[in-house]
Amino acid sequence: MDRELGDEVIVVGGGVVGLTTAVVLAEGGRRVRVWARESGERTTSAVAGALWWPYRIEPERLVGDWALESLAVYEELAARPEETGVRLVEGVHDGLRLDALGPWAARVPGLADTDEGLSARLPLIDMPVHLAWLRERLGKAGGTVEEREVGGLGEVPAAVVVNCTGLGARSLVPDPAVRPVRGQLVLVENPGISTWYGAAEEPAGGPEGGSEGSVSTYFFPQPGGLLLGGTAQEDAWSLEPDPEIAAGIVARCAAVRPEIAGARVLGHRVGLRPYRDAVRLESELLPDGRVLVHNYGHGGAGVTVAWGCARQAAGLVEPGPAA
């Protein structure tokens, strides 16, 4: 290994997974820089609905522990919602029952079957605020964030490189197993709804993606308005909102809460979830002796597992030099 590289860690990727991983490393005593192709406000994380829930992420046997570890952090952060962007909000998963979930569900406080579905008080995260808070927390720990384009992970000049590039890993690793699952959302003026709602996905035809896509119905009350969703279009790359899809989203949500039908539309959001058959969380030794840690492929649950995965990734980084 090049001795001039020292003990610095460079985290590639500035979304919620990359920033959280960088915070854990920096607070653990490492010198950390984040290289981000885009600033936090322009990442996929920034447009996420961001309800804590293990959605479209595998493998289930590992996801439960990552999610529960993250849940404990968010419950603490919810004491300072204006600062952290995290609130605990009541809601219901329509048609879902506890016995349909994995063992992790029994360890979620307050998760209970009701006549309406599965009721819970869960973290709901205002992502622009949360991403800004993560960057500030990283700065207080001595870390920095730089906007930089990376052509390949091998060109990153650090003793340890942590790959949190999400969908970017498809070309940077390269790993063709990482695929986009397109999600479209509509932001409307909140007509007075204070609880979140979610219903199971179902196959969709037409513009939502034909046999390869699905739609779901959900709404999340965020400080800037009511966020309506959504879609899951596999292998779809367009970031342009589709008006027909948007109209379908509003109609489905209004079927649950009629007052949504007349709500003024404030904006549209599109994000590409970085789905993989299994999250890649492992380390490898590069030919020159440097360490490359992978932490990507979190699908639609990057926020949900961010802290659990960050701590495991940090554990794969060799301990820094003694002070």
Rank of each mutant, 00 (worst) to 15 (best):
R30N: 07
T20S: 15
N190L: 07
A177S: 15
G168C: 02
L228W: 03
A247E: 13
E4D: 12
R264F: 08
G299F: 00
P191G: 06
E208H: 13
A72G: 11
D242Q: 08
R179G: 02
G154R: 01
P180Q: 02
L272F: 09
E76T: 13
G299S: 04
D126N: 08
H298E: 01
L292I: 09
G102I: 10
P207M: 11
P103G: 06
R273K: 06
G300D: 00
P274I: 05
E212L: 15
G64H: 04
N190Q: 09
L226S: 02
V160Y: 08
A112W: 05
G299M: 02
E83T: 05
D277G: 13
E60V: 13
L62T: 07
A100W: 11
D242C: 06
R170A: 13
Y197G: 03
S211G: 11
G206Q: 06
V23I: 10
E244F: 12
D113R: 07
H294A: 02
R276W: 02
Y218H: 15
R257S: 15
R33V: 14
G64Y: 00
S45E: 00
D288V: 01
Y275K: 12
L111N: 03
P203S: 10
I249Y: 07
Q312E: 15
A26R: 00
V162P: 01
G205P: 08
R148C: 06
A67Q: 02
A132M: 07
E202F: 14
E38R: 15
V160D: 10
A200R: 14
R269N: 12
V32D: 00
A200L: 14
R252P: 05
V291I: 15
Y275N: 12
E234R: 15
G271I: 06
G302I: 03
T165E: 02
K140H: 13
D7N: 12
I10K: 04
D113S: 11
E4H: 12
I193N: 07
E202Y: 13
C309P: 01
A199T: 09
V11N: 04
L118M: 06
S39N: 12
E136I: 03
V265S: 13
G192V: 10
G206H: 08
A169M: 02
V86S: 04
I260K: 08
D65R: 15
G6A: 12
L98P: 14
P128R: 09
L62G: 08
R97N: 08
V12L: 01
G297E: 01
D235I: 12
G224E: 15
A48K: 03
A301H: 02
A105Q: 06
T21H: 05
R37M: 10
T217G: 04
L19A: 08
L5S: 06
A199P: 09
R290Q: 01
R252S: 15
T114F: 09
W53R: 10
V32I: 08
V188M: 07
P174V: 05
P243K: 11
H294F: 00
L172N: 03
A314P: 07
W35E: 00
C164Q: 04
L167K: 00
D175C: 03
Q233R: 13
P243L: 08
V162D: 03
R3N: 10
E202A: 14
L187R: 05
R107M: 08
R182Q: 09
E208Q: 12
V12S: 00
